[in-house]
Design a protein around this nucleic acid. Sequence first.
DNA 1: TAACCCATTGTTACCGGTTACCAAGTCGCT
DNA 2: AGCGACTTGGTAACCGGTAACAATGGGTTA
Lengths: 338, 338
Amino acid sequence: MHIPSSRITINDIARLSGVSKKTISRVINQSPLVSEETRSKVEAIIAETGFVPNAQARALARGRNSLIALVHDGSDRGILEAVESGMLRGMEGSEFSLVLRPVEGDPVARLRSFIDQHRPTGIVLLPPLSESEELTLLCDETETRCVRLGRVRGEHGLACDDRTAMSELVAWLIRLGHTRIGLVSGPETSLTAQQRELGYLDAMADHDLDRGPALIAAGENSFESGMEAGRLLLEVSPRPTAIVACNDEMAAGVIQAAQRSGLMVPDAISVVGFDDTPLAARIWPALTSMHIPWAAMAQEAVSRIRGQAMAADDAPALKADLVIRNSVLPLENQSGAT
Amino acid sequence: MHIPSSRITINDIARLSGVSKKTISRVINQSPLVSEETRSKVEAIIAETGFVPNAQARALARGRNSLIALVHDGSDRGILEAVESGMLRGMEGSEFSLVLRPVEGDPVARLRSFIDQHRPTGIVLLPPLSESEELTLLCDETETRCVRLGRVRGEHGLACDDRTAMSELVAWLIRLGHTRIGLVSGPETSLTAQQRELGYLDAMADHDLDRGPALIAAGENSFESGMEAGRLLLEVSPRPTAIVACNDEMAAGVIQAAQRSGLMVPDAISVVGFDDTPLAARIWPALTSMHIPWAAMAQEAVSRIRGQAMAADDAPALKADLVIRNSVLPLENQSGAT
DNA sequence: TAACCCATTGTTACCGGTTACCAAGTCGCT
DNA sequence: AGCGACTTGGTAACCGGTAACAATGGGTTA
């Protein structure tokens, strides 16, 4: 049994202000077809009663819910925090709410049933999901706005140039004198990770440095895989003097592996990360990392979904940026010792 | 203009299977009032067409949405990840979805309008919000199920005994020979933090140790405040040989402060955290911390909201547990050196 | 054989908004 | 005065489910 719950509805407002439902609807939807007088009268009553339109009824009538979903596959926890808070900032003061939707397993099927069930206004896809054309198609089909974060540019995409950013990061290490630079790569299935790896290769090639497979260890974007890859790279001989990881989680793993085996960072070996997640500043030594503006991108993504795309050039805030902390030393200041 | 979107509805299923809407409704709601034969026929058709009931229509009719909200004030980012994933695990395979709802500023007003707008089935409150009676009252009023995480036991509450856990943690340090033990406390407004502080005082009193104010530095649960408090504690003389922080974020801050000032952890000073968040394992040295089963509590919270409360004793998984890593050394193994 | 009961299933009125369509009032213009 | 154009507001159908209540049909009992 369902108690009428006596909450205020649009009908109550209509009755109280002596106009029709439709007019109230016009007022709350900012339609211009209402006289100034009527509008202010209705608005006063709404404020007085604390009326809030029922999102369900609205969603049912419009065929769209005031929800924006963050869809990811759980493979890169690191950037989640930044994306969440960016999206939240983008929806502040609006009618929208953020739904978290991990889709492990079969992303297409799970996303489809989610969309059918909730009819969100839009979704934000994180890599590596943002690389799937299938998911974008699904959104088109269901008329769900969709923004793909990372690597994919263009109509639905919002990304930094990972490849260039990584190559700049490595070039910076090279300028500090490093020549044997190891890489902890990301999962093969992730185009984002591939771009980063390419950026590394670009820089190494530009400077004619050894970029043989021995210097590249495969990671899976997780801390544990970073530790494992770190262990491997520390054993190659001659040992790299610097290691770059394709994300911060793995960089933290590399640091852990190094310190455990008695190699101090950065005195014995330099380590850099990528993304500049909150973790980077919290570990010791604080991690030098390439800042990717995930929060800003997420906020912009929400704006797009809300239909308030920024001016044509959305570039300014969306540039990668090197953040120098304490995990790197110029080669000459490093002791070669164990 | 709204295109009919041609999605499958309960009416289509009714037509296809030759029974009434109501019967379909009964089937998807697992009502026992349907013959086995009808049920399986309908289920076959549902599976075949990929029909998913529209959550909005449902929510409108029932007066309740299939949403569970995580409500917090953003003051303790650390436990958020664990709570999120616990809640998500609790809703896996169900019709429920997770909404993130930070309520800074005026929690009561913001939560009220959120509830009026979305009518979630339930909400999970994180400390320090879970300590507010007002919010619980609001949920009662609006018939929204509510679980308060941390510190509050009883009907709506789900918590570990923070005080005892902290006192055990400190007692453990004392057994390792430490006698000058500093505390980084949490915000004064948080009862959870207060309980932890009391636990510290209990243990110190039990062993007749100095628990003067000089050994207690106030933090705000953030990494930065932990660093600041750490700096203060490292300057008191004689210097504490161990520092316990009221959460992991602050413990990481203490470690950072110590290492920056040249005090190696744990060789020169031991540091312990509280909560055992993902951060604890990622920093160097890996942080010894009191595990608080936030994920398990969050999962149980969702179960309660879904109306499947566990057996009377929900205790087993909900015990705090010391996780020993690398940030503590017995006093005798520490060098007193700078 | 009629009366009755139980298990199933259907009828119909909502839930609280949006929207297509229509009606009425105001105004300026010829 | 007559007319259309424009503004403003009302009516009623609909979005896709749920639920109170009625109804149907077969077997069992008197």
